[in-house]
Nucleic acid binder design. Structure first.
Lengths: 137, 137
DNA sequence: AAAGTTTGTGCAACCCAGTTGCAAAGTTAA
DNA sequence: TTAACTTTGCAACTGGGTTGCACAAACTTT
């Protein structure tokens, strides 16, 4: 258990502290992406700033990626193992407008776009909104 | 001039007040999408809340649409004449990571996505990031 | 093992976009 | 002109995100 978590951290060159183990543990358990405020609620004890910096560290080291789904708080989810967060690695995200959960649609990669002349591409944020299978009446 | 602006407002069932005429005027002049804070700076005089509510009114009446480009402030741009803001009307937006301007790529409609079973689609926010033609070195 | 260095954590304070309540001003209707 | 409604302006607040700083914990070096 703990060893798997620690391995994930060290594989990405992140020193495995107690805090980081806990946060990664929780993130691993989620089926949908998690925001900083949500994380704060899950860890009554922990400090917002620490959680914030933990997420930043994870993101910089490509352990997680962030999704801005327009709900006002950025959400985070684990990257796929080999993910380098390059444009061709990116997948579509789905925000359920009912339950406000954000899903990583890992097997739906973002479509290629033909940009206008002299525009260069760095990344894509694609959020599809609608009702998820749980909420669809 | 003023008549065109007023016509656009009344066509969308928005009462043409002085404030609204001014805001629509300014929005019409922009080649890129405009945020509330930017608008505040353009109108030193006007109140934030009024501008805010003006934008909301415009958006509700489908005169403008909003784009969350992840910069921390939502941006607004005029809709195309016949726009109903339905999924099939939506276009891709481009955020230049250098100059932070957000372009409506009006002739690039968002690609169709095959959602998982029992997921329904309401709308799509697709923001491509990179360097625009002005900023590309 | 002690002193020094680096890294991580916790607290407090802050910034800023967005939002709301309320009262004053303006507009429309009777 | 009065009454009803709409718009505007001010002030205050919310909440997510961010930073400075001091303390604690973990590595280094001798």
């Amino acid at each position: 258990m703990k060893n798997e978590i620690d391995k994930k951290l060290t594989d990405k060159n992140i020193k495995p502290t107690a805090m980081r183990e806990l946060v990664l543990q929780v993130l691993s358990e989620q089926k949908t992406a998690t925001s900083l405020p949500e994380l704060e609620r899950k860890f009554e004890k922990a400090d917002k700033a620490t959680l914030y910096r933990t997420l930043k560290t994870f993101e910089e080291n490509k352990l997680i990626h962030s999704i801005d789904d327009g709900t006002g708080s950025v959400k985070y989810a684990l990257c796929q193992d080999a993910c380098e967060c390059h444009p061709e690695d990116l997948h579509v995200h789905f925000l359920c407008t009912r339950c406000k959960k954000t899903y990583c649609l890992n097997d739906i990669t973002v479509p290629t776009i033909n940009l206008p002349k002299n525009f260069s591409l760095e990344s894509v944020n694609m959020v599809v909104k609608g009702a998820c299978s749980n909420c669809k009446s």
